[in-house]
Design a protein around this nucleic acid. Structure first.
Lengths: 350, 350
DNA sequence: ACTGTCGTTTAACACGTGTTAATAAACTCT
DNA sequence: AGAGTTTATTAACACGTGTTAAACGACAGT
């Protein structure tokens, strides 16, 4: 077996030029420096020998790993049932490939944040990172603000000055609940997408409150439940909530994943959506259009979020000053079949 | 800002030892060489300076990137709606973290396989790779057989000698269809999970054929459709298939994702599952237990597959000879509510 | 005190590339 | 043809670590 490693020296030798010339040919930026015929010669030699520039050596010499990190703030157990993730990864992979970058996925344990962020960046394993669904209680974020590491949050943390790409969770949630109110509902429950330590969860909950307040509806805290990303938690919370039924005729579930579980619980209780309970979800994951009933939900353009995050990060690590360090992607209420006008018989008075 | 990079030299200086000693302390293997007090001194100095060994330099010197690659054979568009992926990624992240490895995700375009595989391994960006759902028509696989790169397939390719971890797709599919036959069904349709270029798809289809043959049921090719991973394709194929209704009373859908779309199509046609049509899925994704009706399906232990793949790969790249280069993970039919005994009225004769 | 042994530490080279500053070559203009 | 100018190429150093083989020091035994 020909295990001898092919280096730029070998290519240089075969092409009859110096190693530096080879290096110039393979760093696409300043190709102008090399005469076309020489470049051609080098390319052919490289092809013939099966030369691929060593990534580590390159990273070491240029101080750029050409890799970005996707940091997940949840444990693998929750990652496993996150149907929003494939959209994000798909979007990132698309851009990252165009830009010839690598994508490193990492999961950070609570309590290890600072350690992990520093490790990744100082060790230059990655040039920059995208933090998915950041948490309020993440002390690593303030550490990242201090040192100057290219970093983009997918999701917003209020007092945090790091660049972010996000939707307006609060306004979008209000949109969803406004719609339910428009349909005549006044007893509206809520199941969040996650614990309120996650910014998106608390913001969506705020949006729910905003809508009720704007319509002069008193907020009944007993109609609010916190879920945990997945359908199973939605099932549990909904089951619990159904003990209060019929004190509500509609529900806002701040995640389609969670909503799937909620739907199952409602059905198991012998009720139906939207006949007995109207439901509006959030995220518009690809499956939402095929649930039973088809979910009325807030469309979150995952691909666009992924793309914008990636673009923003790349501007930062090229040293360009971006047009804006905070990007808000517009959402949209998608009306399908899971919410309808309230039935007369459901109207009760407090 | 203190942007000066901290190197092992700085640590050595502060600890009053040589750079080599620092290096030995940080390569955990042969700690026995260093006296405990010295090690302690070095550790403290490193802590104080905030030293993190440079990953690239390390990779270059040791010829190990300590990173494994997860290679996806689909385009981002299909990756985005793959609900099986989070489970795989979750499982991998878990192990990879324990082993202090990085996880690099890459997507390979058809036609670029050889190029990409060589690039990744020769450039030493990664030490080894896991190829997710390999395809029959992937010329890169034979290339990988030639050169000696640590590599594990998640899924099996018949004439390919690369190590793999997989379920027995064919037998598992037969299990599902056997169950439908047991319930009295004889007109059984099939929608695959993907194009037959994907080994899992063609194997599951074979299992379907096996079951029918074993029960002396003639195979009606017009009852077979190919889907494309996602619910949307399942919807389309099912809609098409329903023109043949009632020439079938049951259907085997070789992916829960696709089955969700199929369920929606059935419902849109004014029919119900399992009253009019019995359905058995495949994969048992976490959501399957919450679909309407709850899906009877073949449980595929994704986490276990991910873990075994990772373990196998790590044995390979440590140079250990694994107990076996091919691992088959057992599956199990999970009986829920989407299939039932055939109604008398549905029995027709060919 | 001298030799030999063992356990620690270090000097020196290797890893494969990027990049600057200097050199060589080609080309222009009077 | 020679001076000046641009363009193409190269030599030499830098990047930060792993690792081998040699140097060192302590310690025991005669």
């Amino acid at each position: 077996m020909n295990n001898k490693r092919v280096t730029s020296f070998d290519v240089a030798e075969l092409a009859g030029v110096s190693r530096s010339t080879v290096s110039f040919v393979f760093s696409e930026d300043k190709q102008s420096r090399i005469r076309p015929e020489t470049r051609q010669k080098v390319r052919e030699a490289a092809e013939k020998l099966g030369y691929y520039p060593n990534a580590s050596a390159r990273a070491l010499a240029s101080n750029q790993s050409n890799t970005v990190g996707l940091i997940m703030t949840r444990s693998p157990r929750y990652i496993a049932s996150d149907n929003f993730l494939p959209q994000i990864i798909g979007g990132l992979l698309d851009i990252v490939k165009q830009e010839q970058l690598g994508l490193l996925i990492e999961w950070v344990e609570p309590g290890q944040q600072i350690q992990t962020y520093l490790q990744l960046t100082r060790a230059k394993h990655i040039d920059g990172m995208i933090i998915l669904t950041p948490r309020f209680d993440d002390p690593g974020l303030t550490a990242l603000e201090q040192i100057d590491i290219p970093c983009v949050l997918m999701g917003q943390i209020p007092e945090c000055n790091l660049p972010y790409v996000d939707i307006d969770n609060r306004a979008s949630a209000k949109l969803a609940v406004d719609y339910l109110i428009e349909l005549g509902h006044r007893q509206i429950a809520c199941i969040t997408n996650a614990a309120t330590a996650y910014s998106s969860a608390s913001q969506r909950l705020e949006g729910y409150r905003d809508a009720l307040k704007a319509a002069d509806i008193a907020i009944d805290e007993s109609l609010i439940r916190m879920a945990d990303f997945d359908a199973a938690s939605g099932y549990t919370q909904m089951k619990d909530l159904l003990r209060e039924y019929p004190r509500f005729s509609a529900i806002f579930v701040a995640s389609d994943n969670v909503a799937l579980g909620a739907l199952a619980a409602i059905h198991d209780a012998g009720l139906s959506v939207p006949e007995d309970i109207s439901l509006v979800g959030f995220d518009d994951i690809p499956e939402a259009a095929f649930y039973h009933p088809k979910l009325t939900t807030v469309h979150t353009p995952a691909k666009e979020i992924a793309e914008e995050s990636c673009h923003l990060l790349m501007q930062l690590l090229k040293g360009e000053i971006p047009y804006s360090r905070t990007i808000n992607i517009p959402t949209q209420l998608i009306i399908r079949d899971s919410a309808r006008m309230i039935e007369r018989s459901h109207i009760t008075t407090n």
